[in-house]
């Protein structure tokens, strides 16, 4: 009697401990973000001003938009490393079409969307038809895109002198800058798509068990192809925003506003997207992106050296990876 009681008690206790740990792992990011805001509100001058809040959001928008697409690809169990290639090619295409060929802005954006679909198709062709491991295939396609972009730009940055592009970026519908609208729209669409459509269910199914999904009639290849096209589109969108802000094409996608693959990985892992696919919530990713952006902004306002931020970013990445590993084992 007593024996079984203690056993039950012990079981319940480990259950409780596990549940608490899981609760902590699922929600620590929200708590950390709030604590960070409170800390900076007291310690960093001008942190809680409207301008600064908007600045923080704007600076997180580019990485955030890329991360949205990247997350969807990760959820299918695929890793897309073509971010820098797509960024460079989309940015150069935008500059060449809009500035040098004089294509009107709406048509430029439309053509860019077509181009990103093609870029997504190239990567998915290598992964699906070539049966190459996704990370390597996308590294390869990224190389081709980089080469094309350097060629189109003749090896230099193209300055944009026509004002429409930057003017469009500086518009503020309802007082909120365009890039923030785009950021939230991306996550809203992603949220609805993942949680309330058949495609979303297919994406989770493909990522959590590829063979089972295929055997139950889910068109896994098409799902992966669509995910890669979505990622290419969001990446191009981010590239256009970065190009508009700098009024320059981004050579190699690493100059101002360029997107670093490690940043995108950090945000996705901090947001709890599993690298093995099928696990994760896109809205938590948005919080992760904001968390990183707030951290960067607050440290800047406190006057720390930029190098400190780089070290902290590295630590955040390592920490996110360890947390992901701990979560896997629960």
């Amino acid at each position: 009697m007593a024996n079984s009681d203690t056993l039950e008690y012990r079981n319940r206790r480990t259950d409780d401990a596990q549940r608490l740990l899981r609760l902590a792992l699922d929600n620590w990011l929200y708590a950390a973000t709030i604590l960070l805001c409170i800390f900076f509100a007291f310690r960093a001058p001008n942190f809680l001003t409207v301008d600064n809040v908007i600045n923080t959001l704007v600076s997180s928008s580019i990485t955030g938009i890329v991360t949205a697409g990247f997350t969807i690809v990760l959820l299918t169990g695929t890793i897309d490393a073509s971010t820098s290639g797509i960024t460079a090619l989309a940015s150069v295409l935008c500059a060449v079409m809009f500035q040098q060929w004089g294509v009107p802005l709406p048509l430029t954006l439309l053509l860019l969307m077509v181009a990103s679909i093609l870029m997504g198709l190239v990567s998915s062709f290598l992964i699906i038809e070539g049966r190459i491991y996704s990370l390597i295939a996308t590294l390869g396609s990224s190389g081709v895109f980089l080469g094309l972009s350097v060629g189109l730009a003749a090896g230099q940055q193209i300055a944009i002198t026509k004002p429409e592009l930057q003017n469009a970026l500086f518009e503020r519908p309802l007082g909120i800058p365009v890039s923030i609208w785009v950021l939230f729209l991306c996550y809203l669409l992603g949220y609805v798509m993942l949680n309330h459509t058949r495609l979303g269910a297919h994406i989770y199914a493909t990522g959590s068990n590829y063979s089972a999904a295929r055997l139950s009639g889910i068109p896994v290849k098409r799902v992966i192809r669509i995910a890669l096209i979505i990622a290419a589109t969001t990446t191009s969108l981010a590239a256009v925003l970065a190009t508009a802000r700098a009024n320059l094409s981004l050579l190699y996608g690493v100059t101002i506003g360029g997107v670093n693959l490690a940043d995108v990985f950090t945000a996705a892992l901090l947001g709890g997207i599993s690298l093995r696919g099928g696990v994760g919530k896109i809205e938590r990713n948005l919080v992760a992106v904001l968390f990183l952006s707030i951290l960067s902004n607050g440290l800047q306002l406190m006057g720390t050296a930029p190098a400190v931020w780089l070290v902290i970013k590295g630590l955040a990445f390592v920490g996110a990876v360890i947390i992901d590993a701990v979560r896997q084992r629960l």
Binding site: T266, A305, A307, V308, V311, K313, G314, F317, V318
Partner: peptide, 13 residues
């Protein structure tokens, strides 16, 4: 990839 990011930060600092 994670340790690499950290190393880059260290090198810069």
């Amino acid at each position: 990839l994670a340790l690499g990011t950290l190393c880059y930060g260290l090198a810069i600092s």
